[in-house]
């Protein structure tokens, strides 16, 4: 680990100010990703700003929904009674990710800001456009079984590793941030970026901006939802493909649909056309297959991850079936019904 100076901030303003005066500053909360990356020399901060004492650890009722403080741990969020009752999709996505120890430490804001687990990004002996812009992307044509099939670029084919963010995308959460220019709200779909020609930028946060809260809207799709996560082993592994689905049904018909995919793109992947296609249609396998076909029509697999296209297609159909039937994927009994 490189040497860095350390600031313990007591308020958001102090944290933002400490960022502004330092070279290569980083905010640290749970540290579960940042400390790991520092051990690999992928992150070499000049200053760490400890934000764990900031008063951002509450979950509050807000505008008909919930306001989740950025420092609420993944575990505290998943086991909050209101989340369990109204946003069980979010609960299940969180509990599908990482381990209990990591969820006890990892923060809400940090989950949004975690970096890709691309092997080349982690390996400082190889080039990587995300780690060192302009050096190239060895994942293209290399070991890319875990990489993106949607929205990638010639510069980067990394995926965003979060499960929680897939649910937050489906729920259309809002990210409240604070920075040198004050406070602003960012729609969840606009928070993370596609790689394009600047894969070093994961998000649309400006330098010195800090996530203050994640706000959930009123509708939680608690009746008809699922988080279906497919991975190489049944626990404690990143998604190859995951599906967050939320439906509002009107009798046998779909009134509104939310569908987000994880493990397949640089950000949680949504396809508004597929969601629109579902609207007003009978909640049947045929309808779900049509939506899935529409989503995967855009897929551009790499040399080793072609299997993800069919896996995604089938996972979408199964996820929508689980949601429609009100039988969400169990997070302990991993059998897929």
């Amino acid at each position: 680990m490189n040497r860095f100076d350390y600031v313990r901030a007591g308020t958001v303003a102090e944290a933002v100010q400490a960022y502004g005066t330092a070279d290569r500053a980083r905010f640290i909360a749970g540290g579960t990703n940042l400390v790991d990356l520092m051990k690999y020399d992928v992150e070499r901060p000049g200053r760490l700003i400890d934000i764990t004492r900031l008063p951002l650890d509450a979950i509050e009722d807000h505008a008909g929904g919930l306001r989740i403080g950025a420092l609420v741990t993944n575990a505290a969020l998943a086991y909050d009674a209101r989340v369990g009752e109204r946003y069980s999709l979010l609960r299940d996505a969180i509990l599908a990710g990482a381990s209990a120890q990591l969820r006890n430490a990892a923060s809400t804001g940090g989950n949004l800001l975690q970096r890709t687990r691309c092997y080349y990004f982690y390996d400082t002996a190889t080039p990587c456009n995300k780690r060192e812009p302009g050096t190239g992307c060895p994942a293209i044509g290399g070991l890319n079984r875990i990489h993106a099939i949607f929205g990638a670029s010639e510069a980067c084919i990394a995926t965003h590793p979060s499960d929680m963010c897939v649910a937050l995308a489906a729920l259309e959460a809002t990210v409240r941030v604070s920075g040198p220019a004050g406070e602003r709200m960012i729609a969840f779909a606009d928070f993370h970026r596609l790689p394009g020609s600047t894969p070093e930028k994961d998000t649309n946060l400006e330098p010195g901006e800090i996530v203050v809260s994640v706000d959930l809207p009123e509708t939680g799709y608690a009746r008809n939802y699922t988080y279906l996560k497919l991975r190489d082993r049944l626990s404690y592994a990143f998604a190859l493909v995951s599906v967050a689905a939320g439906l509002e049904l009107d009798g046998d018909r779909v009134k509104t649909a939310r569908l987000a995919l994880g493990g397949v793109a640089h950000k949680p992947w949504r396809n508004r056309e597929a969601e629109a296609l579902l609207q007003g249609k009978p909640a049947t396998r045929e309808t779900f297959q049509a939506a899935a076909d529409l989503v995967v029509a855009e897929a551009k697999p790499q040399s080793e991850n072609g299997f993800k296209v069919e896996l995604a297609r089938r996972a979408i159909v199964r996820g929508l079936e689980q949601a429609a039937a009100g039988t969400p994927q169990s997070i302990t009994d991993k059998r897929i019904q």
Partner: peptide, 21 residues
């Protein structure tokens, strides 16, 4: 998980925690 300890009663990975925090 070999480094798991309890911090204020909660289990965490001691390898990913900076002691100063």
């Amino acid at each position: 998980g070999a480094c798991t300890v309890l911090v204020d009663g909660t289990r965490v990975n001691a390898c990913l925690i900076l002691a100063v925090m």
